[in-house]
Design a protein around this nucleic acid. Structure first.
Lengths: 124, 124
DNA sequence: CTGGATCCCTCAGGATACTG
DNA sequence: CAGTATCCTGAGGGATCCAG
């Protein structure tokens, strides 16, 4: 979508906007992280691992991730039913992104905290 | 913060939770991106570059980024006043993270879109 | 120009209860 | 077990006005 003045629209100002919405919306990172570590998991296992997520939200996020091709859902209509989720290859391809975040976190998070306390103490 | 049952709290399930909140909260990515490209900018220049952000929110985000040490603010109480913002070294250290996102975006975003249309068409 | 102060409003997300 | 249905809150964000 272009503006009449020929300028780029605001979203274009940041080329990673779409992928940020995709990967870093609420709960998606913990879900992908968990599935990446533990492999194929049942619905209730994910729920318990995440701890505080409600079933409604968990289902929402899993559907979104499935639609985006990052997670694969397998449903077995047994009694009791069984639904299993696993990360896809496309999902695993995010590994370098996550690694970069882990590395940055390890190297710079303390400096962020220091900056915060500096800022707070200089203001009161 | 540990729970009485000795289990890890949900946030710990994903070690990059904190950094995600830090870097990928709303508008922070476009702001950092813009400052990284254009260098030192005045308040109104950032505002115009982002296009749709309101002054209230822009100030909120800039303050947050300043507090976290990712952005440096220089205020000159002239008439008219002048406020300039620039990315810090700590802010620039996020470059590898952003690069990883750009690269992933270029390689896999089309596949995400394909997954979405597949998902949508298979349901109606 | 650089914001602070206010009002408002949506809507993502949480709590709770219930079904196949 | 694996969700759906319903209701609800509150916090983020938009709009507007105002001040230094």
């Amino acid at each position: 979508m272009r503006r009449p003045d020929g300028q780029s629209p605001p979203a274009q100002a940041c080329p990673i906007g779409p992928v940020v919405d995709l990967v870093f919306s609420r709960w998606t990172t913990p879900i992908l992280w968990t599935l990446n570590i533990y492999g194929r998991m049942r619905y209730v296992e994910i729920e318990r691992t995440l701890g505080t997520i409600t079933p409604k939200v968990l289902t929402q996020r899993l559907r979104q991730l499935e639609r985006d091709g990052l997670v694969k859902r397998t449903y077995l209509p047994q009694v009791p039913p069984r639904a299993e989720y696993e990360i896809t290859e496309l999902g695993r391809s995010l590994a370098p992104v996550f690694s970069a975040l882990v590395e940055w976190s390890g190297s710079n998070l303390t400096e962020v905290e220091r900056a915060r306390s500096d800022y707070d103490s200089s203001r009161g």
